[in-house]
Amino acid sequence: MKRKRLEAVEGILYVLPSLLLILLFSVIPIFASTYFGFTKYNIMRPAEFLGLENYRRLLKDSYVAAAFKNTAVYVCLTVPVQTGMALAFAAFLAEKRAKLKMGGFLRSVMFIPVIASGVSAAAVWRVILNADGGMLNELLKVFHLPAVNWLGSRFTALLSVCLVAVWKNVGYFLVIYYAGIMGISREIYESARVDGASALQRFWRITLPMLRPVTYLVVTLGIIWSFQVFDISYMMTGGGPGRSTVTLVMAIYNAAFKEGRMGYACAVAMVLFVVILVINMVENVFFKEKGENGK
């Protein structure tokens, strides 16, 4: 009995430091954010309770609406493209890994953008996409194509941010997909090959269905990360031109730290939180279903 109690005390002592930090920097702040979302608050004055006023204002706020729309467009463009590219490249490299000696090297190269910070990647792309003599326009000139004002016009600015994000993320999801493909039993492929299935057939009939759990993961992670986009657009365009590349997180940042409207910023942050929570829950439901059917 005494030993058991001692063990419990030891266990709690081991967990305690991390518990304190997680309480302090995750659990308490999420409740505080929820509360501040109902108040008018800045760091100078005490919080003043407003009820749902912030949320009412939020619905009419064209800046937040633009941020929400841009973020949604960004998610819808980035996630399918990066998922498709990562899957296609991973499947190709896995299929050809016996014949292609440089497959490992190619994967390593594609991983380089993943380890770079969003800030340094965006700093470089900002210069490459420069309308006036940037390398991409120089390249277009070689093919006799007209120069594009990539970061200067509304539509292409958001598109550029999406492209840089895809460029940065593909290597990451490729690694996950590649590991997933390697986990599929070789025998299935062998028997399919014996039955005369082509590489494409093997991809559609074996690889793709077997990778469904990995795809759920890749898509959910992709969506969640994309909703949190900040670094790239902050660095490449600063939200402009106009409001064309303002993202949700940028709207939170600006409201809280540029305008000092912390209560309102918390309300916007709660919207982001709810979106991410819903995506997480949808994923969990899918995964549970999968687990029950699968085993």
Binding site: L24, F25, I28, P29, S33, I252, M262, A269, L272, I276
Partner: peptide, 20 residues
């Protein structure tokens, strides 16, 4: 509860953490 906290994005908690 630990696992649940993994769903909380830093961008949502940064304002209270900043105040703290």
């Amino acid at each position: 509860i630990y696992l649940l906290t993994l769903m909380i994005p830093g961008q949502v908690t940064m304002i209270p953490v900043f105040i703290m």
